[in-house]
Amino acid sequence: MAALGKPPIWPYTADPTKREAPMSGKPASPGKPVSKAKAPALLSLTVNGAPRHAAAADGDMPLVFWLRDELGLTGTHLGCGKGECGSCTVLIDGEPARSCQTTLAAAAGKAVTTIEGLGTPQAPHPLQAAFIAEQTAQCGWCTAGMVVEGAALLARNAQPGRDEAKAALEGHLCRCGSHHRVLRAVLRAGGREPS
């Protein structure tokens, strides 16, 4: 007989420096509701500019599930759930963060921007427009995370070069092989010739 070797319930990366957002206070143990005496009944955060509230009992829930299931913001895709692929990237206070590695509690009090908050097909963010112009997506699973990461890059570097784009996107995986067009799109959005 063999007991099932228990992996952690959610594979937060072991290395805390790779966590995308600092944990606020002690992380709740999985499945155990945060004590009502110590935590407010609601966690408050801003999502795409609108104030939102989450049950404090869900403080240990990775942000990605809350965005998708509670807010219906399904543009944020869960990829690996291990912080390795970048599919679920959102902006937290303007910085790219992996929403599978960020708990609701850690996001509380902060401003979250998802892919839906960047733009729409009718009024796309300049990088979204460039992704469309370059016809970048294949299956599209990784696309939103790359757009969010690229938007953050453009916010700090208006005209990134190919190597800078590669470096910024290094933590983002794509299985279909859309990399070439992603790089072109980032260059295009920065006003460079996408070569």
Binding site: L73, T74, G75, T76, H77, L78, T114, I115, E116, L118, G119, T120, P121, P124, Q128, F131, I132, Q135, T136, A137, G140, W141, T143, A144, V147
Partner: peptide, 13 residues
């Protein structure tokens, strides 16, 4: 492509 790039494309998920 526009919906995939803007997060509005509907997947089975």
């Amino acid at each position: 492509v526009p919906a995939k790039v803007c997060g509005t494309h509907a997947y089975v998920h």
